[in-house]
């Protein structure tokens, strides 16, 4: 997975997650995600580019939320891709993560 910072004014702390969030990439992903938590108090991660997500990936999102909360920051996930929605729904994490799940208009992932 790649973490792309959004550009422009007020874009600090806003990232777009691109690629797979799975056991294969989990080690690198953890580093990248934790690093991305260093920033302003309001963070927004766009999940539209997540192509694949497994339990390891879901686990990392839970971790990120928890770490953000521990640092009294708010972290919001937006524009969940189909893969992200499928995983989050299967594990019934929507309530736990607390973000509204809105499918992006078009599925870029499949």
């Amino acid at each position: 997975m790649e973490l792309r910072p959004k550009k422009g004014k007020g874009a600090a702390g806003r990232y777009r997650l691109e690629g797979e969030l799975t056991i294969y990439t989990a080690n690198d992903d953890r580093e990248a995600l934790l690093k991305a938590l260093d920033g302003p108090d309001e963070l927004e991660w766009n999940l539209a580019g997540i192509t694949e997500m497994d339990t390891a990936g879901a686990q990392l999102l839970i971790l990120a939320k928890r770490e953000a909360a521990a640092g009294t920051k708010t972290l919001v996930f937006t524009e969940h891709s189909a893969a992200a929605v499928e995983a989050i729904e299967l594990l019934n994490l929507a309530g736990h993560l607390g973000d509204p799940l809105v499918l992006t208009g078009k599925e870029k992932t499949t």
Partner: peptide, 25 residues
């Protein structure tokens, strides 16, 4: 019918090994 995912066993970020499974169901 219903799934509850329990992340309670997951240690703090510094000790968390992302290749380990900490979730209970």
């Amino acid at each position: 019918v219903h799934v509850v995912t329990l992340p309670d066993a997951m240690p703090p970020a510094a000790e968390m090994d992302p290749e380990c499974c900490y979730l209970g169901f």
